[in-house]
Amino acid sequence: MSSTTTQPDTSYLLRKLHSFTGLLPVGAFLAEHFWSNSSALVSRAKYDATSQELQTIPFRLIVEWGGIFLPMLFHGGYGIYIWLRGKSNVSAYPWVGNWLYVTQRYTGLIAFAYIGWHLYTERWLTHGTSTYESVAMDMQNPWYLTFFVVGVLASSFHLGVGIWNFLCKWGLAATVRAQQAAGQFGALVGVAFSVVGILIILSFRFDWHPFSAYLPPTK
């Protein structure tokens, strides 16, 4: 408690890192992932080509571990630690922000579990060579399908609320009006990710390619 120090506490730095990694790289990766997988909405071949492209990026292991797996592991692990140090009281004080506080914790845990399983089935078991065929096969299993839907919704919600939290907690949205706008922006991101995620799932489940008209006519 020496008040003359000017160095922030480790808990301060870890907390900031937790907040930051949620956006970069974890949130950014989620955006990239949804974007890449959207190619399934065009065609099977387009998806396989995108998948192939990603599987052959240079420095793949370093990018995967340093840019995706480890930051996610830290964000999730430290997030659980933060959860354990809070004590929710939403039944006594059922305000919107308080509800978001609680749901942010549950959706975080669901997303973390889902992503772990998703990585295991689609990255580990396939040795990083997933194809449209293999994903579509998985989607035939109703349990897999349900977990996909729940996982996508939880991740999208967590990202949307996370963006709101981030903008407030770094003081980028400070006034009441700015925080309201930040909340609307977060909601928009959450809804957009949910919709896109569900469309991708539908594409795999029903072999549905609404953007196939973009492809040059085959004659």
Partner: peptide, 8 residues
Amino acid sequence: QECANAQN
């Protein structure tokens, strides 16, 4: 840093 933005 302990603030988690519940805004209560």
